[in-house]
Design a protein around this nucleic acid. Structure first.
Lengths: 252, 252
DNA sequence: CGGCTGATTGATCCCGGTCAAATGAGGTGG
DNA sequence: CCACCTCATTTGACCGGGATCAATCAGCCG
């Protein structure tokens, strides 16, 4: 459903993030903000925003809430292949391939801006910085996807869960969604299991191990990182793939 | 080292592949061919074309040979996150992020075309079909990366290796690198293990299982698929993510 | 209160890792 | 041509991380 009124501040995560990837010209920023405000939408928790096989003809930019990309095997095994956080966009350029090869579900209530393909194309055509910002977003997304491959392929359960927490924390930070050493963690253990390729039972035991070693507190849908350095080192976490600092600006 | 002379036919895989993703205008095709011919390079087997942390300022389009993208953890664990086959490009737009977050190694001798960033940018700026073709390539690459996450997260060893073989076969087919039901497989079992997240020992035993059940023959660096349907079904392989057929052209 | 979903625990099993050694296949130098 | 080295493949034995199955517990809602 469209939002009738909204002030510009809901757009902040998206603008902040894109601007960190590529400094946006004031005109590009204004044009994008205008387009986003016109396409504001809400969705409840646990909805499929779009499913495998569905046609794509717009871009959605998430403004608040968590989503996940996932795929399901014929026999029901599910794998979450990525999370989508505020400021990130769902399907930048995906319409070039016409249909989705995976599904996107909301994990919490979500506010997002939907921009139709033609509109999006003309926004990007009008401003190079904007086009580059969205390209950078795709590139970072690819890098995250690669890191997930390593996580699943070569890290043990404890490292794997620790790594996921580090990544989530560092991805939420630049959009202002962490508070000191804690952040929201509005997902079930089943979701975390599906994201880490573990069974729910073993994920639960792994969480207990992380708690027992004093690395984290996870309660009431809130993650508190008690010892970030220790967590990063048990995760073998090295954040460069997230491009958090001066994301490639030196060539820009 | 640059190739002194070369006829246009070496470019065929790349042109064929890009053209399948987006029909290229004749002018775009000619301009791209010209740029590629000027930047032809060779590399031997087992070289790192580029390493994690290296600056990027060009695009490389592979014309023959196999490469892989990989990352290594501090303690030496290695994960191959993707293969790169003839017709595919290494780093389209990657220069936007300045540096590599992973490494690319040759698995065989390789011929590729290197195009400097500025040149590449102006090629894409001059022709929309070309820009879209490279965007599609990125999108397909992302989809493959996601499928690898599922492969490592939710498929058992046998399914996983079968899936990898299905994917390789289907990626090689459109560039004319399969011969009936067989294709080259110029990699060691260590490489296959690093790509599937298995140990070499277990990968070896998994191969034997695939051979014993009559699905494949793998000998002398050649893979023969004896029963493609059975292989696909043990792999739970569904090729839509590869966009092999009319890759998104209906919206183009 | 009953039903539902999510978190937790216990018991058992087996897939796949690890360690170690053997075998094979080139390649090279004497 | 053979001795030797290196690298890839294969095999054997053993172990343990994580899956599976099943039950219990804790909130939450109607």
């Amino acid at each position: 459903m469209p939002l009738s009124t909204a002030d510009r501040s809901v757009l902040e995560p998206a603008i902040r993030r894109l601007n960190a990837l590529r400094p946006l010209s004031p005109e590009a920023r204004a044009a994008l903000e205008y387009a986003m405000l016109e396409g504001l939408q809400r969705a409840g928790a646990g909805e499929d925003l779009i499913s495998e096989g569905d046609p794509v003809d717009s871009v959605r930019i998430v403004l608040s809430g968590w989503l996940c990309r996932y795929k399901t095997l014929e026999d029901g095994r599910r794998q979450i292949v990525n999370f989508i956080f505020p400021g990130e966009s769902c399907d930048s350029h995906a319409f070039l391939l016409s249909t989705m090869d995976h599904s996107i579900a909301t994990l919490t209530p979500v506010v997002y801006a939907e921009i139709k393909r033609a509109r999006f194309d003309s926004l990007l055509a009008a401003d190079r910085s904007l086009a580059e910002a969205f390209l950078c977003e795709m590139l970072v997304n690819e890098a995250i996807q690669r890191e997930w491959v390593i996580n699943l392929g070569r890290r043990a359960a404890l490292e794997r869960v620790a790594h996921l927490f580090c990544e989530i924390f560092e991805r939420l930070r630049p959009v202002g969604m962490v508070d000191g050493n804690s952040c929201a963690m509005p997902v079930t253990q089943t979701d975390l299991a599906d994201a880490t390729g573990l069974s729910v039972v073993h994920l639960n035991r792994t969480l207990q191990e992380l708690r027992a070693s004093g690395l984290i507190v996870l309660r009431d849908r809130t993650l508190v990182i008690r010892d970030i350095d220790a967590l990063k080192s048990t995760a073998l976490f090295s954040p460069s793939y997230l491009r958090l600092y001066r994301g490639g600006r030196e060539h820009g």
